[in-house]
Design a protein around this nucleic acid. Sequence first.
DNA 1: GCGCGTGATGTCTCACTGTGTCATCACTGC
DNA 2: GCAGTGATGACACAGTGAGACATCACGCGC
Lengths: 193, 193
Amino acid sequence: MPRWEPSAEDRLRESALALFLERGYENVTVTDITDHAGLTRRTFSRYFADKRDVLFAGSERLPAVISQAVRDADPALGPAEALLAGLAGTAAILAKQVPRSPERRRVVAGSTELRERELGKFVAVTDALAETLRARGATDVGARLLAEVGVAVFRAAFARWTEEPDGADFPVYITEAAAELTGALAPIADQRK
Amino acid sequence: MPRWEPSAEDRLRESALALFLERGYENVTVTDITDHAGLTRRTFSRYFADKRDVLFAGSERLPAVISQAVRDADPALGPAEALLAGLAGTAAILAKQVPRSPERRRVVAGSTELRERELGKFVAVTDALAETLRARGATDVGARLLAEVGVAVFRAAFARWTEEPDGADFPVYITEAAAELTGALAPIADQRK
DNA sequence: GCGCGTGATGTCTCACTGTGTCATCACTGC
DNA sequence: GCAGTGATGACACAGTGAGACATCACGCGC
C-alpha cells in the first residue's frame, strides 16, 4: 500500500538501471541512486540487501517457478525430457514478464561482481531443479548434473535471446541449445555402452 | 624476495584459514587476520584484492592449467573426449598440489559470499575451456556448453573427492560423474536423431 | 665498513557500504 | 479529529578497500 510517491522500490530500480547504464556499475554509489530517486540510502537498504540486489528483483522466485514447470511436465517423460520441457515452458513465460532484460544483461555483463551474484542466483535454481529431478527418478549425482546442464542450456539460450532482439522466441533457443549439446556429447555417450 | 619474517602472504593465508575455521568467515575481520599474522590491514590489501580472495590463492592459474591439459590431449580425440581426458589429468595433479582442500572447502561452503566468488573463478575456467574446445573443432555454442558441462563434472567430482577422504582418486570420480551424466542424458540424445 | 636505493611494511586518511536506533510524517480506521 | 501503523529520514558506527606518504631492512657498489 504505497502512500508517498508511488512505489519507492520501483523508482530505486529504475534509477539504478539508468545510472548503471550511463556510468557503469562501479562508478555509481548507492547515494547516487537514492538521490536520483529522491530517497535516502537507508531506504535503499530496506528494499535491497545490497547494491547488487537492485538488479535481481524477483529472482528469488525463479527456482520455484522453474521446478514447478518441470514437475508439471507429462508424467510419462523421463527426468531429462521433463527438464527440457520445463525449461522451455518457463522461458516462454519469462520472456513476456521480465522487462528490460537486454539492458540488465548489458550491465551485469560489465561487472565481475554482478556476474558473480547472477551465478549465485542460478545456483538456487540448480538446487531446486536437482531436487525435482530426483523426485522424478534421477539418481543423486545424475540429478545434480542434469540440473547443472539444464541451467547451462537455459543461460546459453537466454544469452542468445537477449543478444538477438529480432530473433526467434526464447523457447526455440532452448531446444536448439539442447540439441547442440547432445550432439557435442555424442562421442562420449556412445563410447559408454 | 621476502626479508622480514618469511612470507607475509602465506602467514596471512594461514591465519585467515585458521580464524575462519574457528569462528566462521563472517565473524572474522581483516584486522583480526592481520593481527593474528603480525601485520596490518594495509598490507593485507597489497596481497589480496579483498577479504574473500585470501582463500583463492593460485586459482587464477587454474584456467590456463586445465585448458593446457585439454590442448595436450591426443589429437585424434574429439572435443568432448579431449575435455574428459584433460579434466582427469588436471585432477590428478591438483589432488597432490593443493593443500588444505577439505578445510578450505568447508569454509567456502559456509558462506554465500564465498560460494559466489568460487563460482566466479570457475567462470574463468569455463571461458578458457570453451576457447580451447573451439580450437579443437567444437561449434561456438557447443564449445561453450561442453565447457560448462566439463566444469560441472569437475566440480561434482571435486566435491565427492573432498567429502570422502579415504575414497578413490580424484580422476576416478571424474570418469564416474561423466558416465552418470551421459547416462542421464541418453533419452534426449537418442530422440535427437 | 658505509651510505644508498629499492622494495616491503606501517600510519594516516577518506569514501563507501551495510546496519541499528530512534524520530518524523502520512495515511487509515475509529 | 485523533490514535495507531507503517514508510521514510537522520544520525551513528563498524568494517572494507584504497591513496599518499613515511619508515625500515636488506643488498649492492664504493
